[in-house]
Design a protein around this nucleic acid. Structure first.
Length: 454
DNA sequence: TTTTGAGTTGTTCGA
DNA sequence: GTCGAACAACTCAAA
């Protein structure tokens, strides 16, 4: 380590342990740790994700003894400016494979190069980086199962230790952070930062992972990993989780979920257009409802007032916590697309805004899967029945009662079908709950017809 | 080139 | 209540 100064540009890898870019930076010289608040990325981020980001940066900042530099602006201006300001000959970062990140990094690379500085991308937020795996004929995978086999065969690196000593450059100026849309949002979110990620990971892997395969589908139970916000901000890396799983990683359902994350990142990397466009263009003729009635229904869905308790519970959990149980994400998404016939893009945008863990690749392709426009487009006749899903996965109705206060007077699974209850027998609150805004059986037929006609 | 088997997460119907 | 079949037919991945 000489007198050289380098910049470590943190993006979505907000941790010190197992951070290959940081190791490379620390080896190259004295390090200026930088985070750039980019208004382009902040635009679609709602209060929950902004609060989650700020809380994560607070922890990282204190872990770095206050050396973290936060600037606001476009990274294509800010990163070269900071590099020039501190006299850095190189900027280190983990690669970003998203559509915007790819364009941004290419511009940053060029601007830096014009000043004889280097952008060095080391590592990625994935166990297997997008673009790595190919079918035998050389193309990208479009089906998950063969991808996951190649993914396991590929394997992943061991985690790297945190650099023993980093010579952080102190006292570089920071900008004021952009304002938080909702200052109270952080009170509703789980603890952020690298240490909290480890606590969550060890809790889950020591006593949760066994019940995960079946329990993860039960929103009334707490049997998911709750690691998605940490994976989103990189306070933990999937490679670290796979190492903790050890020999169990092979068959485990949880490792499979990590493979899904990598798969969708790979799909988006090869098809950046699918943020807006259908992955399968044979679905482009699908007719979506628009206009005032559709807008009113969309609003009812957003606010959790559709009259279908499991849907409303999920949508209210999203607003309250910036997180929704995965099974319920599928139920609510299916309801928007198949029962309300509203374009998956509107639902995807709403989710991305309000989810603290909102990830472009997983969110986009999760929605496309539900809409039947994405990978595995064939079984388009798969329409979730919200009441059947509710009774199957929230058998006692505990999840619904947690988020839909009006229905707390209904006990057991009766809460899933309030239209069968006689309001006055169960106290006044049930009467204030909306009647179903559409009839599922009828809308199911409409959806099937549209999918056939397209 | 052709063939073959398979594809996250489902629902409904009828026996 | 439980079970298997049908749903409609397409595309992918590998042999």
């Amino acid at each position: 380590m000489g007198d050289d100064v380098v910049v470590m540009w943190f993006r979505r890898d907000l941790r010190i342990g197992d951070n290959p870019a940081l190791v490379a930076a620390a080896t190259a010289g004295r390090v200026v740790p930088l985070f750039v608040h980019d208004d382009v990325l902040a635009g679609p981020a709602g209060a929950n994700r902004v609060a989650s980001l700020h809380a994560t940066l607070d922890v990282l900042g204190s872990d770095l003894d206050g050396a973290l530099v936060e600037r606001r602006g476009s990274p294509t201006d800010v990163v070269p400016a900071v590099a020039a300001e501190v006299g850095a000959n190189a900027v280190f970062a983990a690669a970003d494979f998203g559509p915007y990140g790819q364009r941004r990094d290419e511009v940053v690379r060029q601007v830096l190069a014009a000043d004889d500085r280097e952008l060095r991308l080391v590592g990625s937020p994935y166990a297997v980086a997008p673009g790595t795996l190919h079918t035998k004929s050389g193309g990208p995978f479009k089906v998950f199962t063969p991808y996951s086999k190649a993914w396991r065969a590929q394997g992943w690196d061991e985690p790297v230790a945190a650099p023993r000593e980093v010579d952080w450059v102190a006292r570089v100026r920071s900008d004021r952070r952009p304002p938080t849309p909702d200052p109270e949002a952080s009170d509703r979110l789980p603890p952020a930062g690298e240490h909290a990620a480890w606590v969550a990971a060890e809790r889950f892997l020591s006593d949760g992972v066994d019940g995960y395969r079946d329990g993860r589908n039960r929103p009334d139970l707490d049997q998911t990993s709750r690691l998605s916000p940490h994976l989103k901000f990189g306070t933990i890396h999937p490679r670290q989780l796979l190492a903790l799983l050890g020999d169990q990683a092979g068959p485990s359902t949880f490792a499979n979920e990590l493979a899904w994350r990598d798969f969708y990142a790979d799909v988006l990397f090869h098809r950046p257009d699918t943020v807006r466009r259908n992955f399968v263009d044979t679905m482009d003729g699908l007719r979506w409802d628009t206009g005032p009635v559709a807008d009113e229904r969309f609003e009812a869905w957003c606010q959790g007032r559709t009259g279908y308790p499991i849907v409303d519970a999920g949508m209210r959990q999203l607003l309250a916590e910036g997180w929704m149980h995965n099974r319920v994400r599928m139920i609510t998404a299916s309801f928007l697309v198949k029962d309300l016939h509203i374009d998956w893009r509107r639902g995807a945008a709403w989710f991305l805004r309000h989810l603290a863990d909102g990830d472009l690749a997983s969110n986009t392709h999760g929605w496309q899967w539900t809409a039947g426009t994405g990978t595995d487009a064939a079984p388009f006749f798969r329409v979730f029945n919200p009441t059947l899903q509710a009774t199957r996965f929230d058998p006692e109705g505990d999840y619904v009662r947690r988020y839909v206060r009006e229905l707390r007077g209904l006990s057991g699974p009766a809460v899933h079908e309030p239209w069968k209850a006689v309001g006055h027998l169960f106290g006044g609150d049930v009467a204030s709950y909306p009647a179903p805004i559409v009839d599922h059986a009828a809308e199911r037929d409409v959806a099937l017809e549209r999918y056939q006609q397209r």
